[in-house]
Design a protein around this nucleic acid. Structure first.
Lengths: 143, 143
DNA sequence: CTGCAAGTTCAAGCCGACTTGAGGTCAAGC
DNA sequence: GCTTGACCTCAAGTCGGCTTGAACTTGCAG
């Protein structure tokens, strides 16, 4: 259970070394010290990074995640509850879209927009859906 | 049921005119013609934009949405099914994170990372969570 | 000792999704 | 017929989240 270097942390988490340095700079993770120049991380950082990945995949910004993970004496419960509620809404949206896609697979209408069921989904979607940039997929650090 | 101009479309959907022009350029929406210089849109574009908003909120890129919405003679069912499965995974992730947040509210451990339940969530989250940029919230076009 | 792979810093670049600003054009109202 | 203001185009800028490249430092193997 000794501290691990950045390459090992990258290997265990699938997060690139450059991203790990960036995370440290942003305060999302901490290194326990250095061996020469090289950063050392506690093994528990692996779990912390899982949580960060989960937050990212759920659409939170790094700053928001930092806030949720902060050790601050006053971690705001109300804010967490609000986040949870927001997640519930997003879950509903995703479920609706999933149902829409599955219906689209089975649907015989010539195009999605001509399918009344799909248009119903569209109508439900409404104005309130928040803008959000596109995902980018993980790319491996060149060997 | 006459065609509407870009300002009206923006008003009905909450999407800024500049974004609508960008969407047209990317082929996500089409204008039916011009009145002078001004674009005209069919009223059904409102629904289409709802769908686009839903897709965005669900983490799809504009290109992916364009593909899903395409009228193409061969809209790939397998791909849609894959998207639906992906959504299911994302829904699971979000539910897990939501449960984690709710537990955090109730939890007595001094910090999230010291709570065994939360660490369990972190462990489940695993490596497979895809990287994804942060949401940006909608900002209204200056009056 | 020396070499070198694997780390380091820092600045600059990239991507998607828009927004902003400058300068131009048009249809409608006076 | 002229102004006005809503819309137009096009290029450049912004933002978050990294990645990349150049130049440098180390600990360890030989």
């Amino acid at each position: 259970m000794f501290d691990i270097d950045i390459a090992e942390l990258a290997r265990r988490t699938g997060v690139r070394a450059s991203a790990l340095r960036y995370y440290e700079e942003k305060g999302l993770i901490v290194s326990t010290g250095r061996h020469g120049l090289k950063r050392l991380f506690a093994p528990s950082t692996v779990e912390r990074l899982s949580l960060i990945a989960l937050g990212r995949a759920s659409g939170f910004s790094l700053d928001e995640i930092a806030a949720m993970l902060s050790e601050g004496p006053a971690i705001d419960k109300g804010q967490l509850r609000a986040k949870a509620a927001e997640l519930d809404r997003r879950i509903d949206d995703l479920a609706r879209l999933r149902d829409g896609l599955l219906h689209a697979v089975a649907c015989t209408a010539p195009s999605l927009m001509e399918c009344p069921r799909f248009r119903g989904i569209a109508r439900l979607a409404g104005r309130q859906a928040a803008a959000q940039p596109a995902r980018r997929r993980f790319r491996a650090e060149p060997a």
